[in-house]
Design a protein around this nucleic acid. Sequence first.
DNA 1: GTCTATAATTAGATAGAC
DNA 2: GTCTATCTAATTATAGAC
Lengths: 231, 231
Amino acid sequence: MDSALDTTAERGTQRRGDVTRQALLDAALVEFAASGFEAASTRAIADRAGVRQGQLTYHFTSKDTLWQATVEHLFERFDDLLGARAGARAEQDEPSQIFARSIRSLVRAVAALPELNRIMVHEATAATPRLEWIVEHHVRDRFDALAEQWLAVRANGAGTIEADPIVIYYTVVGAASLLYVNTPEAHLLLGRDDVVDDTLIDAHADLIVTMLLGDRSRAADRQEPSLLGRN
Amino acid sequence: MDSALDTTAERGTQRRGDVTRQALLDAALVEFAASGFEAASTRAIADRAGVRQGQLTYHFTSKDTLWQATVEHLFERFDDLLGARAGARAEQDEPSQIFARSIRSLVRAVAALPELNRIMVHEATAATPRLEWIVEHHVRDRFDALAEQWLAVRANGAGTIEADPIVIYYTVVGAASLLYVNTPEAHLLLGRDDVVDDTLIDAHADLIVTMLLGDRSRAADRQEPSLLGRN
DNA sequence: GTCTATAATTAGATAGAC
DNA sequence: GTCTATCTAATTATAGAC
């Protein structure tokens, strides 16, 4: 309780636990993304983390709890990636500019952290308690936000295409994520491992923005290197 | 060997095996789509089929073989669905018309048989022998065909958007499939089970065609009810 | 607080009955 | 040819050692 009572040995022991916990989280992320919850074994996760299976149960109580912690961790990192791109957002931006920037941030974040969307598709194919949890804790707000942005675009006269928010949502997310979710497949298709690079990711983001908003918004919303330096 | 030697009892026994085999295939389709290969247990499949676990191994030798048979079966049904829509295709059609019809067929087929694409995403997140098999036996030809159609559209001056075939492929397939792959999630998001109907599917197909080819191709390629009746 | 040894359950496949 | 009873291996979680 009182940190003044901590001996060096105790702090060392505590730190050892933290290292184990972090190694397990990193390993779980990879295994759950590649195999899904059920197919990912706690042994495979422990092996990848370089610890024993029993340590996993000790630090995370159960496989379910580890999965939940992994997803929380991934969404935090995902939001960091999204936010890093928001950059010089101005209040007076047009809805179509805001929307375009959201799409570009989304594509880059999904490309940088494909594990999150891999876990999402593994879970979304069947109604389970895990799916309910993830929808209520992480998906619903994002769905509402994107739907709202899209309606603003439409109200503003841009985005000539008419569509249900649910259709727009899954069309956008599907278009933005499958390339990165299915990268192992793309590698086999093209016979090489360097399919995805920054140039391709930017072209992909451009494609989706252009598809949804038309050519005119293309150059305007592109994130250019700031000529004035950072501030 | 000689069918003249078959007794009624023998034919009856044989038919019984066919029934079991078919029930197992139907059940496997559901379980593999919902859970993926590893997470789907042979017992759950057998239970769903109303038979015992041992019968599965007898009729399909191994879980792998059953999975392969299930995928073959699904692609046959998928191609039937795609072909049923090809309809009155004319040789002199423009590339953009051909492409638009492909997209509409694709969306409708994916919506009618979401299990196939669910199995695809479960498998595509990790490099396994199963992924290699499915890519070489079923995906590569489809990727090549769509890439070729897209290049024809671009050469013809339509499809103002520039993009790598691999980017186009995953953007199109992702945009077309995620809504149906993730239907359990969509049900939770909207709080109802009747999210997907024919009207929405057609609107979804229109959206994707319009996104890729622009407004002008919209009405022209729409499949209208034939005023001349079938022939 | 941390980890190891072990128990209880469930997995897929085999061998033998019908 | 078809199916059932059973075996071995792998799963996660617990109980107890350090």
